[in-house]
Every structure is written in C-alpha cells, then in structure tokens.
C-alpha cells in the first residue's frame, strides 16, 4: 500500500516536471513547500502522530521534502540555462574574430630558420664571417689561386681598397678553421654577392648556408647521409636525393645535389639544390700555413663541406617564380607567408 506521502511526492515531482515556465514552477513550489503547502502541513501533523509511527513518517517526510526540493532546483536551473542560451543564441557567431595585427616573417628568414633548425638537430653549431672579404679567404685559401679558371674576378664585386664582397659563404670555412682546431661541425648562414645582372633567377646579392664538418674519417658516405637527411626533412620523406660528381676547386671529390619530389612543382624533374664535397687537402694546407701549425693535418683529418642556396631552396619550397620578389618586399607577397 502506498503511503499518502509517497503519493504526494509523485504528484509533486510530476507537477514540477511538467511545469511549462518559471511561474508555474513557483506555483508548484508554493503548493508543496510554501508555508501552508502540503509538505509543510504534514510537518505540522507530525506532532499528532504516535510514538511508533513518528520516526517512520518523519524519515519519509524528509526524503519527500529533499526529493521535491532537488526537483524544483534542477527544474529552475533548467529554466535559467535555457533563458541564458536563448539570449546568447541571438549572437551572430559568424562575425569575424577580433583582429590582431601579427606581422609576417620574410620567406627567406623562414627558409633559414627551417634549415638551421634541421642542422641543429644534427649537431651543427652556427658560425659567422664578414661579407667584405679579402682575396685570400675568398679564393686562394679555397684552392683557387690567381689564373685558376674557376677564379672569376669578372663576377666579383671589388671595393676601392682591393677587398671584395664574398662570392660564396665558403669563406667562413676558412675563418672557422683559422679560429679553432678540429673537430669542427658548423653551418654558416649568410649573404654572398655575384656580379650578375638582376633577372628572374639571378640576383647580385643572394643567400647561402655553408656547412663544414672536419673530424677523423669523415667520408662521402657521411656527407650523403647528412644531406639526404636534411633534404628529406625539408622537402618531405618522399624526397629522392641524387649526388652527381662535379667540380669545385675546394672539394675533391665534389658532388652536386639534386632532389626530386612529387610534392614539388615540376614533380618528376631533378632540381639542383646544392654543391658539396670532401674538403680538398690544399684547403687544409692553406689553413695550416695561416695558423702556423699543423692542426689540420690532411693525413689525420678529413672533412665534408656543402653550400645550399637559400633563395633557390625557398623558391622551390614555396613555389616562388622570381628571385626579385625577395628584395622587393611587396606586402602582398610577404603577407602570403604570415
């Protein structure tokens, strides 16, 4: 048999549940929990109950009161959150977010940062050298004596005092070795200059990363491993890398590096991206002579060196058709790389 209190509870819960609005809910609250509400009047009647009945009904009454209170609160919370949502629903969420001015880094900077980050993971430190150089660092020390067919003064900018603008960052190889004995493991990002007419693929000022690793038993295989890793990190794991024998005065053997990747425009074509090789012993000999010691004994040490064209790599990676865009700094260009 159902106790009348239980019946009362079920009625109350039912009424609360079906209250259509806050006003109806308030009516229900007054009806059950108000001063003269049904539950309150049961409390009044408690006094009239017998000793045996009192604790049972008291417990039941408590439960009923709690259940009804909880139901009222939950229903009220529902109404409140419903109202809040209805108010907010009028907001047009398709409006644009508050704009913040965030500048773009130049694509060449981005190229440099990406490259440096990869080489640092491979344990290269940075090195530096001046843009204004002397002939010895730019040519002679790099096994390109006067009258060497590869020493092209025609393509070199000279200053009135006979110094020149470095034609490659390889000068930093020499400066680094002059400054410290082996082992050496450095990269040197920087500008280089060539007396070229400005066109879509040539610029009198361009940018490189030079690399040099001198240690015991450094080999062509080590060079390949390092640059294959670099190219795949840069252009994606699916990148094919090819090393083709070439000629540079300051490396022997010398290798040009080509990449091919479906991810790049022009897909199935090999693209030349870098020059590299095993440091020529004559370079070590020139460094030793300048140092006045035998720190770079070609019998004990070997090394690999490489030079990457940053402008070219950026043009390939970002699909930029014209090298002149880099120095023009049109904001419509720069902002594409924000």
């Amino acid at each position: 048999m159902t106790h009348p209190l239980e019946q009362l509870r079920d009625d109350a819960l039912c009424e609360i549940e079906s209250a259509p609005d806050e006003q109806a809910l308030e009516t229900a609250r007054v009806k059950y929990l108000g001063k003269s509400g049904s539950i309150s009047s049961w409390s009044e009647q408690m006094r009239t109950l017998g000793k045996d009945e009192k604790p049972i009904v008291g417990k039941l009454l408590n439960e009923v009161r709690n259940a009804v209170t909880a139901a009222l609160e939950s229903r009220a919370a529902n109404f409140r959150s419903q109202m809040e949502s209805e108010g907010l629903a009028r907001i047009d969420i398709s409006l644009p977010g508050t704009p913040h001015e965030i500048g773009a880094l130049h694509p060449l900077t981005q190229m440099w940062e990406r490259s440096i980050e990869i080489f640092r993971r491979m344990g290269f430190a940075l090195a530096d050298g001046p843009d204004i150089e002397d002939e010895w660092h730019c040519f002679d020390a790099l096994n390109t004596p006067p009258e060497h067919p590869a020493r092209n003064e025609q393509d070199t900018f000279y200053l009135p005092d006979g110094r020149l603008l470095r034609t490659h960052t390889s000068t930093v190889q020499i400066r680094t070795m002059q400054a410290a004995p082996p082992p050496i493991r450095v990269i040197a990002p920087g500008a280089a200059y060539r007396r070229d007419e400005l066109d879509a693929t040539h610029s009198p000022q361009f940018h490189q990363i030079e690399g040099l690793y001198v240690d015991e038993n450094v080999s062509v295989a080590d060079l390949k491993g390092a640059l294959e890793f670099f190219m795949r990190e840069l252009f994606g794991t699916g990148t094919e890398v090819q090393f083709r024998p070439h000629y540079f005065p300051f490396t022997e053997p010398s290798l040009e590096i080509y990449v091919k990747s479906k991810a790049l425009k022009g897909g199935e074509r090999w693209i030349e991206v870098a020059g590299s090789g095993i440091v020529h012993p004559a370079v070590f000999e020139a460094v030793n002579k300048a140092r006045g010691d035998d720190a770079y004994d070609p019998k004990k040490w070997t090394g690999y060196a490489f030079g990457l064209g940053m402008d070219r790599l950026a043009m390939i990676l970002f699909d930029i058709p014209d090298i002149r865009l880099f120095a023009q700094n049109d904001l419509r260009f720069l902002r594409q790389f924000a």
């Binding site: 491979m122 344990g123 290269f124 430190a125 082992p183 493991r185 450095v186 690793y213 240690d215 450094v218 080999s219 062509v220 295989a221 080590d222 390949k224 491993g225 390092a226 640059l227 294959e228 890793f229 090819q242 090393f243 083709r244 024998p245 290798l255």
Partner: peptide, 14 residues
C-alpha cells in the same frame, strides 16, 4: 655516387 649509402654521423657540438 648513388652506390655509396649515406651514413648517420652526428656529433655533440657546444
């Protein structure tokens, strides 16, 4: 040159 496999030779550098 393509028959020479690349090797991983890293080094700690300060």
């Amino acid at each position: 040159a393509d028959k020479i496999p690349g090797t991983d030779r890293s080094r700690f550098t300060p």
